[in-house]
Computed example of a mutant assay.
Amino acid sequence: MLFSRWYEHIPVIYKWYELSMKREILKGPIPQHIAIIMDGNRRYAKRMGEVVEKGHMLGADTTERVIQWCEQLRVRQLTLYSFSTENFQRNEREKKAIFNLIKDKLRKSRESPETHKYKIRINCIGDMDMLPDDMREEIRETHNATGKYDNFFLNVALAYGGRKEIVDGAARIAEKVKAREMNPEEITEDTIDQYLYFDKKQKSSVDLIIRTGGDERTSNFLPWQASGNECAIYISAPYWPEFRKIDFYRAIRAYQNRDRDHKVKYALRVIKIKKRAGQFRKTEVVDCLKSGLSLTAEEADSILKDPHVVRAMKGAAA
């Protein structure tokens, strides 16, 4: 693989490294909603001297592996950017190949014993009216077959555009207001969230966005769900067909580092505020961490042991 390190070509060392990373990330919080921009299928195919359709097929194999990795780590929700509104500009041959591939995967997924064993709900999010009739039929059948499950949510973003999602949601809310079924004063962030594409039985806010292929942009993907949630973004150099488990683990490690940094900064703000008020007590800091960040006493105590927090507390107590 183009982006792998030398030792990752040696199976025994690679496996040891993979297991070592898994043990490391299992010590920290696991993101409950991961979203992935699966970029690089076409570039990978071009590099291999293959047609772009081959790249999409190999990318679909990676998708199946990533779903399994999420299940193994007990991630509750995975959202995959499969086809954007901008992708409709691609040539008819490629679009047909992508749609046929997605239909085949939806069909196999809803018929798979694993889907029903692990109670996986498969949702397709986006502007379904933009899709061909046969695609919409596959989506309906998949929703009907898995809609009762709530153990793991697999969201497939099709004909999806983040700005369009917000506009469509706002239009639906406006219709409710016009029909006097809703008062403008009642509209909150939770209200808007309820009128977006996501299934209303699941949490839509995203903890971690992964983009493969090296491009440092989010491409109009989940702007509402990622904003205001301290969402971590991880850019992975390998193209989607060559995305490996260690790349997945690295992304989760980046999330954990970001999550801890956020908690440490929150603790430092609390200490600063308490010091200015002349009311500094360690127990009050712990209580603020537990209530403000929904932490357990053990988790709050772990944040208090961070060197930056220790120094701040000594300064406040002086």
Rank of each mutant, 00 (worst) to 15 (best):
L2R: 10
L2V: 14
H9Q: 11
I10T: 14
I13N: 01
R23V: 10
G28F: 15
I30T: 14
H33D: 05
R43D: 11
A45D: 12
A45R: 03
G49V: 08
K54Y: 04
E64V: 09
Q68E: 15
W69E: 01
E71M: 07
R76W: 02
Q77K: 13
L78N: 01
F88G: 04
K96A: 10
K96F: 02
N100P: 05
L101E: 13
R107F: 08
S112P: 15
P113Y: 04
G126N: 15
M128T: 13
D129A: 15
I139E: 04
I139N: 03
E141S: 07
Y149V: 02
N151W: 03
F153H: 04
F153M: 03
F153I: 02
L154T: 00
L154W: 04
A157K: 10
L158R: 03
G161P: 15
E165V: 05
I166Q: 00
D168W: 03
A170D: 05
N183R: 10
L196V: 12
L196P: 07
F198L: 11
K201W: 02
Q202T: 07
S204I: 01
V206D: 01
D207R: 04
L208F: 07
R211F: 06
G214C: 04
G214H: 02
G214V: 03
R217E: 06
T218A: 00
T218Y: 02
G228M: 11
N229W: 04
A232E: 06
I235H: 06
S236L: 02
A237W: 05
W240H: 01
E242K: 06
R244I: 06
R244Q: 09
I246R: 08
Y249R: 05
R250S: 14
R250M: 09
I252L: 13
I252W: 08
R253A: 13
Y266S: 09
A267C: 14
A267E: 06
L268V: 09
R269G: 14
I271D: 10
I271V: 13
G278A: 12
K282M: 04
L289V: 09
L293H: 11
L295Y: 11
E299N: 07
E299R: 06
D301V: 08
I303C: 06
I303P: 00
K305I: 06
P307S: 13
V310I: 15
K314M: 08
G315V: 04
A317E: 09
A317F: 05
A318F: 06
